[in-house]
């Protein structure tokens, strides 16, 4: 595990795994995260063991990007993913595709704007 980017990814993966759990069990401390990462062979660039301060740096970066929420009411602070992995994927796809209803409208308008001849030529192409 070399870069901060890769660490961010690994931390998010761990937090997303917790995301399905009930309230109270879906958050991890920096120490717990460091131990999980170490079990998965997480080391720094020069092969040293991962320090908790590095994990905290990664967490504060993720917090700034509004991907991670910090629970400050008890110490040590616990961190959890703001939302699930799937919800983020949907957010991305929504930017590219629009909503599902938009997609149906596009398809309907598309079918409406193709002539019978063109549709026939297209059908031949698709079944060829």
């Amino acid at each position: 595990m070399a870069t901060l980017g890769e660490l961010e990814r690994a931390v998010m993966d761990l937090l997303w795994e917790q995301n399905g759990r009930p309230e109270g069990e879906n958050a991890l401390t920096a120490n717990e995260l460091r131990d999980s990462l170490a079990r998965r062979g997480g080391t720094t660039k020069d092969g040293k063991e991962l320090a908790v301060t590095t994990v905290l740096t990664v967490l504060s970066r993720l917090e700034k990007k509004s991907l991670v929420q910090r629970e400050r009411d008890i110490r040590p602070h616990r961190y959890r993913a703001v939302t699930s992995r799937e919800a983020h994927t949907v957010e991305l796809m929504h930017e590219v595709l629009g909503s599902a209803r938009d997609r149906e409208a596009v398809l309907a308008a598309f079918i409406g704007s193709v002539s019978a001849q063109e549709a026939e030529a297209l059908r031949k192409m698709l079944t060829a």
Binding site: G98, A109, E118, A121
Partner: peptide
């Protein structure tokens, strides 16, 4: 045009041009 209509027209025009 609504964005959907515009987008559908673009797809249709592209296909027409390729066909």
């Amino acid at each position: 045009l609504s964005p959907e209509e515009a987008q559908a027209l673009t797809s249709a025009n592209r296909l027409r041009r390729l066909l």
